[in-house]
Design a protein around this nucleic acid. Structure first.
Lengths: 187, 187
DNA sequence: CCTACCGATCGGTAGG
DNA sequence: CCTACCGATCGGTAGG
């Protein structure tokens, strides 16, 4: 599954053949089928394992008696953590989930929407208590999600920037942006 | 090319067949070849047309006698503008350029790196003159790029949020984050 | 513009 | 685990 996730990430799901995957794990393509159900089964496991993980972690964060700001910070921490340590998450969340077939595609989209909705509620709580000075929770939500997407492609652990620095600076940039008192004017 | 970009975006380059594309423009697959050189030629044109457009616009922005902040604002405006109005740009910049073959792939990556480098220089100028309080230009750079990626997927013009509001809020979030005086503490 | 068709490659199976 | 092989589909061409 790790090899599959890596290939799906590098070449895309459709462009990755079972022969490519077999070569990556030193087997012939036909031998893979003693271990897995098929190509889509791999993608399915990668996507749903990750969806479950994010929901489980969000459960923990929601329960806390923390401020909305602390919860958003914990979520940013979670997304950065997972993005830097687990290649399968990148595959699952970025684009390859599109290649799931029904009914799994709809099920995945539903889980994704549910996660977004729970995240959005936390942002809305922060808007209500005055700690986030934004007008549209969705914009903040998707900006946060996206701001973490590039990390896997670009970040090389141990090279010039530590993970702590990386996380501190991204969190700072996003949370300062959310908190800022002054509204910027266009022009 | 528009139909191709739309399909590449929806299904991915590899998963889009010439039969799919032919159907989208009401032809048979073989007839497409009277108009185009082939599947990769389409991708190539989409990618390089967009690369040229971004470089051209950046030329104009660099020339101005503006502050670094005003230049970054103009670049954010450019990226949001293009993302909301031109589907081919989404295809080109998000993921599908990976499927270019050599030597075009290397050429595209080189142009992309050049664009990033010029953008980074503007951010660095803003760090030097004290208007951006960040430590690593790269983090700011990639966060800005990524923050605009989700727009096409999600934004529906005219529905609840206007383009002006969208742009103002994203720019505000990013520029406030860059400007913020207080450094956030982890924990 | 079309019909007819090509060699290559795909995901997957049979059988041992 | 492998070799051998399947039907389907791919990008693209020939010929009119």
């Amino acid at each position: 599954m790790e090899a599959a996730a890596r290939l799906f990430r590098e070449k895309g799901y459709t462009a990755t053949s079972m022969r490519d995957l077999a070569q990556a794990v030193d087997l012939k393509a036909s031998s893979l089928y003693n271990h897995i159900s098929g190509k889509e089964g791999l993608l399915r496991e990668i996507c749903f394992n990750n969806a479950h993980r994010f929901h489980r972690e969000l459960d923990q964060i929601e329960i806390r008696e923390d401020s909305a700001e602390a919860k958003v910070r914990a979520l940013i921490h979670l997304h950065i953590q997972v993005a830097t340590e687990d290649i399968t998450s990148i595959t699952a969340f970025n684009d390859e989930w599109r290649h799931l077939t029904e009914p799994h595609l709809s099920e995945f989209i539903a889980q994704r929407k549910s996660y977004e909705s729970r995240f959005r509620s936390i942002i809305e709580a922060g808007m209500k208590d005055g700690s986030f000075k934004v007008f549209h929770a969705n914009i903040a939500l998707y900006t946060i999600f996206s701001a973490i997407r590039w990390i896997y492609d670009w970040y090389q652990p141990g090279k010039s920037i530590s993970m702590e620095q990386l996380e501190e600076e991204i969190s700072g940039l996003l949370l300062n942006g959310l908190n800022a008192d002054t509204t910027f004017q266009i022009l």
